[in-house]
Design a protein around this nucleic acid. Sequence first.
DNA 1: TACTCACATACTCTTTGCCT
DNA 2: AGGCAAAGAGTATGTGAGTA
Length: 243
Amino acid sequence: MLKHTFCHIPGVGTKTEKRLWNSGILDWNSPLGSFKLRKKAEGTFQSTIEESRRSFELRDPGYFGSTLPPKESWRLFSDFRDDVAYIDIETNGYVGPHGYITAISLYDGKRVRYYIKGENLDDFKEDIFDYKLLVTYNGKCFDIPFIESHMGIKLPHAHIDLRYTLRDLGFKGGLKGCEKLIGIDRGELKGVDGYFAVLLWRDYRRNKNPKALETLLAYNIQDVVNLEPLMIKAHNLKLMLTP
DNA sequence: TACTCACATACTCTTTGCCT
DNA sequence: AGGCAAAGAGTATGTGAGTA
């Protein structure tokens, strides 16, 4: 899909991109011919295409991540699927100086890794750089800034925030709501939500209850594993809607 | 060249929704 | 509750096409 993308070029929006496609200019190798671009796009078109080719060859989604309109970030998925990390965090429920991360789950489509405060949380700082593309739900507003400010790292990865892609497709109501609409079942963890995860952590810390931590992790892992079918569904629906 | 029209993009401000 | 990106609404600006 990326090689057919033009809307990351300054001065080209999704409407102009559609006109390009309709004129038979379908990918980065198609000659522009007599297609009339607006001035701004005229000046940057060729250099942007060249940079796009380079970044594609180098398998660097970062360039596209920073230039694609967020609504269109789903286009990164199929070309960079091997470099994807689905991530989700749980916290102690506080924001600000008293807030901290209790658990992080990371799933790459094959294996799940999880990180727990007081055990191996810092390993995440290294492991996350095994990947180039992050997929989250509402991570742009919550998970990523929280990780960056509380772990003291910068995550320069390209990023697909499914919240906006799914919403654009008409799926609203939070992560659980979207799962329900798409038909993903949570099994016995149906009643667990973010706030319950906070309580589980307190139970684990205060009462040294290992069952509480176990449930917390199971919930966190389920969140992150469910992101994959959501991503695939969103990607395929978007693709169907693209001429 | 001068003008108008339609449309796309760009900009600004406000609102919305989501996370734990 | 706190934080914040993106959507949405509204407006401004710029472009290209058409016409005379």
